[in-house]
Simulated scan of single mutants.
Amino acid sequence: MDVRNLPAPMKRVVHLGTRSYGRLTAPGRMTPSFLICGGQRCGTTSLYRALAGHPVVLKAVLHKGVHYFDTNYQRGLAWYRAHFPMQRSAEKIGERYGVTPQTFESSPYYMYHPQAAARIARDLPQARLVVLVRDPVERAYSQHHHEVARGYETERDFGAALALEPARLHRQEERLADDPDYYSFGHQHHAYRARGEYARYLSVMAQHVGRERIHVVESERFFTDPEPVYDEVCEFLGLPSYLERPAFERHNARPRQSDMDPALRRELTDHYLPHDEALAKWLGRPPVWRQ
């Protein structure tokens, strides 16, 4: 049965029943050995699908993104483990390929939530983190369109939404850091400019999990030449890349939004310059959108 094709009310019932069963069987379930943590609108879904197609990778049971370490942490570790395959499924695959199977999920808000990295370090002390980055100007514009389309943003003008961002995010990061039960809609959905300041989020993650456990991927490289990027990710995760690769879709390396106001584009490009220079220290060279 393909849950995706069910009506929404029936889908909720199926998900509830699956999670309830999952909680009961949590001790016999896998836990993720790696996570795709972000960034938002940087191609995380494409990379998720590519890795989910690896022969020795088992994906999360219901959703690609569980959002445990950001907005669902109060539900507990048994709830989280309920989302992943049974150990016996992994054992069968391991016997077939002679490689230890892995499972994972992809929740792009993990990169940005102030408490997520510390929670990951505590609950998944061996997990590796994959982070995608993209031209931050295009990323911000794409996020705004995405939030408008989903009904999470009422300000349809991108420039106006950017102007509202400081007020919407005022002290939200501090409150999220101080109160484990606090939730901020604005912080999750309206941080257009802030989300592209990649290096500062990577720095926080590295403080908690260690820089050696973080792998940064430029989505422009993945979209235009996916095979070597996929092999690099597999090597980082300890996955054999010699097994069959998935079929990759290729995209334009730098899709530019021609309807963005040129003055606003210049302002954002200038704003991100020091952040891109800091990101270059992670990549070992300037990011591709600065070359």
Rank of each mutant, 00 (worst) to 15 (best):
residue 2 D to P: 13
residue 3 V to W: 08
residue 6 L to H: 09
residue 6 L to R: 13
residue 7 P to F: 00
residue 8 A to N: 07
residue 10 M to V: 15
residue 10 M to Y: 12
residue 12 R to M: 12
residue 15 H to C: 12
residue 17 G to V: 03
residue 20 S to N: 10
residue 22 G to E: 07
residue 29 R to P: 09
residue 35 L to M: 13
residue 41 R to M: 11
residue 44 T to M: 01
residue 55 P to Q: 10
residue 56 V to T: 14
residue 60 A to C: 08
residue 68 Y to R: 13
residue 69 F to H: 04
residue 72 N to S: 09
residue 75 R to V: 02
residue 75 R to C: 03
residue 77 L to M: 15
residue 79 W to S: 01
residue 82 A to V: 09
residue 86 M to K: 13
residue 97 Y to A: 08
residue 99 V to F: 11
residue 102 Q to F: 00
residue 103 T to G: 10
residue 104 F to K: 09
residue 105 E to I: 02
residue 112 Y to V: 01
residue 114 P to G: 01
residue 121 A to L: 06
residue 123 D to H: 04
residue 126 Q to L: 00
residue 129 L to N: 06
residue 130 V to M: 00
residue 138 E to K: 03
residue 143 Q to S: 12
residue 143 Q to F: 12
residue 144 H to Q: 04
residue 150 R to S: 04
residue 151 G to H: 02
residue 156 R to K: 15
residue 163 A to L: 05
residue 163 A to W: 03
residue 164 L to H: 12
residue 169 L to G: 00
residue 174 E to H: 11
residue 174 E to F: 02
residue 180 P to A: 09
residue 181 D to P: 07
residue 183 Y to N: 14
residue 189 H to I: 03
residue 192 Y to S: 08
residue 193 R to L: 00
residue 195 R to C: 04
residue 197 E to D: 08
residue 202 L to G: 02
residue 202 L to E: 02
residue 204 V to I: 03
residue 205 M to V: 06
residue 212 E to C: 07
residue 213 R to V: 05
residue 217 V to E: 02
residue 220 E to R: 00
residue 223 F to S: 13
residue 223 F to N: 12
residue 225 D to A: 15
residue 226 P to C: 00
residue 228 P to G: 10
residue 232 E to S: 15
residue 233 V to C: 10
residue 233 V to E: 04
residue 234 C to H: 10
residue 240 P to E: 08
residue 240 P to H: 10
residue 253 A to S: 11
residue 260 M to G: 07
residue 263 A to M: 15
residue 264 L to I: 08
residue 265 R to P: 03
residue 272 Y to V: 03
residue 284 G to E: 02
residue 284 G to L: 06
residue 290 R to C: 10
